[in-house]
């Protein structure tokens, strides 16, 4: 049994937003529950009102709209993983959502809830940032778009206001010849959080890197985009040496913590190794 709270089941998005507006910091939106229930069990979150988003129409869909995938905030991780649409348009995203925890958790956890939780060890932001995704955040005050790379402030702190929820995520469809990879370093068990993980999306034209985006999770207080690595490579001829040098720049982007998955120093070194490997996989042609 958790603490005593009021469980609201609004039927529509405006009703949900009105409830969040009314109760402010005393309320929390509730979707899959996998993160929030654990926090409540440990008395780390004791909201007086839970506003269930389940059952709100239109937030559980995945659709391809022109050049972007739109994923409703209530879509479960497992549904992103298995969606033929996502697999076709952005396989990196399906792959990354498929690496979150275990099937049972992916059946429960929602796309919006996972992002709002702002746990820097969560996998999806790596892929979302590398793909240039953004979220549509809504409140009774209106709607705004936030790039996923700007969504996170600190450990478990996002840019969302207490009355604001994520309605959907927009993921630009990568260029047809772009290659992508998600590398998750799991030296202990397959169901563990990553020691460090890297997503990369890159395009190469005639041996020159025309575009590359790299993002890491579990490496800093927030998911990070390795802009320095990207800058070093973009417009340059792709060589193993260039990639090796560029990957070194990731050191300046990461700021890991000591924990059971490795010391901060080790994680920093591994960030370099896995960034390099991710770049090799995306930028170096197999026959190179």
């Amino acid at each position: 049994m958790l603490h005593d709270f009021t469980f609201h089941r609004p039927g529509t998005l405006p009703e949900a937003l009105a409830l969040l507006d009314e109760h402010g910091y005393d309320a929390r939106p509730f979707a899959g529950g996998t993160a929030l229930v654990v926090l409540m069990k440990q008395s780390l979150a004791l909201p007086e009102h839970l506003v269930s988003l389940d059952g709100i129409e239109g937030m559980s869909e995945i659709r391809l709209d022109g050049e972007a995938l739109h994923i409703g905030a209530l879509v479960r991780h497992r549904d992103v993983e298995t969606s033929p649409l996502v697999r076709e348009a952005a396989p990196l995203l399906a792959e990354t959502y498929g690496r979150v925890a275990t099937v049972r958790i992916r059946n429960m956890a929602t796309v919006g809830g996972g992002l709002a939780h702002a746990d820097p060890a969560q996998d999806p932001p790596a892929a979302l940032i590398a793909l240039g995704a953004s979220v549509r955040a809504v409140s009774s005050r209106g709607a705004r778009t936030i790039a996923v790379e700007d969504l996170f402030f600190d450990y478990y702190e996002s840019a969302l206001e207490p009355d604001e929820i994520i309605e959907s995520v927009a993921v630009p469809r990568p260029a047809p010849d772009a290659r992508s990879v998600y590398l998750k370093f799991l030296p202990r068990t397959e169901d563990d959080y990553a020691t460090v993980a890297v997503a990369a999306v890159g395009e190469v034209d005639d041996g020159v890197c025309t575009d590359v985006r790299v993002a890491l999770i579990a490496a800093a207080p927030t998911p990070v985009r390795a802009t320095e690595v990207e800058r070093t490579l973009t417009g340059q001829p792709v060589t193993a040496e260039a990639i090796r040098e560029a990957a070194e720049a990731v050191r300046d982007h990461v700021d890991p913590l000591d924990d059971f998955r490795g010391s901060a120093d080790y994680k920093r070194e591994m960030a370099v190794v896995f960034t390099r490997r991710a770049l090799e996989r995306t930028l170096l042609a197999e026959d190179a």
Binding site: L2, F7, F30, G33, T34, V37, V38, S52, D54, R78, V103, R104, I105, N107, M108
Partner: peptide
């Protein structure tokens, strides 16, 4: 039909 963790699910769900 989908497996879930009943220790993390509210009865209300």
């Amino acid at each position: 039909g989908r497996m879930v963790a009943s220790c993390l699910a509210l009865a209300a769900q």
